[in-house]
Write a protein that binds this DNA or RNA. Sequence first.
DNA 1: ATGGGCACCTGGCTGC
DNA 2: TGCAGCCAGGTGCCCA
Length: 271
Amino acid sequence: MPELPEVETTRLGIAPAILGHRITAVVVREPRLRWRIAADLPEAAARQTVRNVRRRAKYLLIDLDHGSLILHLGMSGNLRVMDAKTAPITHDHVDIVLETGQCLRFNDPRRFGSLHYTAADPGEHPLLKRLAPEPLEDGFDGDYLTTTARGRKVTIKQFIMNSHVVVGVGNIYASESLFRAGIRPRRAAGRITREEMAKLAAAIKAVLQDAIKAGGTTLRDYVNPEGVSGYFRQQLFVYERAGEPCRRCRTLIRQLRQGGRSTYFCPGCQR
DNA sequence: ATGGGCACCTGGCTGC
DNA sequence: TGCAGCCAGGTGCCCA
């Protein structure tokens, strides 16, 4: 499901329901996520109050009094805010129950998501420690991309999806960003000009920000914590539009395969 | 260091 | 109706 805009939409949606409230219990119905949920996580988080809700890459960080929960939605995960007494459905793996009587309910059919607790700075956690810069922060720009790409033979699409280069750019927004920047997805990262990299950095920022404003992209099943779909799909130029005419030049959108993932581009608009 | 491929899962859709 | 095959929003790990 989620790329950075969907995770950010989730963060904004859950924050009002949990900020400043005490966790009364963590109910784990299915611990076998991408990594098994530690058996002592519920006891560690119980009776602590939620102090902050942050995002780093596609990880949600829920800061408590003395530690943090680190949650990843994987491909198919989603978080909903609901009455804790609501009967769970299939793949409702975890509830974070609050003193308000509401809970954060984590549903994830494919179980590629994860949940960790750390007593230390979550930024030092092995999963987060080596992550690249955030795309929406100032340090991420064309010069950064140019420097980082020097000598690299990997294709530009796989390059911007690499979390050691920049975080949060998944399969949808990689194709969309390259379209907006006018760059063909199979070009080698090291051969993109400085001017093109400047356009690409700007395109990535714009696409992600536009998608956040639209509440994310719902392709199949993504809904925000209130159960509402994102509507950025209407603004996609190339993703899942193979064989359809380009919205800008009417050339037919093409699909190809890179690293086992589908890529979409417009042969007319992208060079 | 870099790049490529695999693995982890369930469910929906297509075509025979 | 059943079943095989393919595809899906992610990413850590292993190997060359």
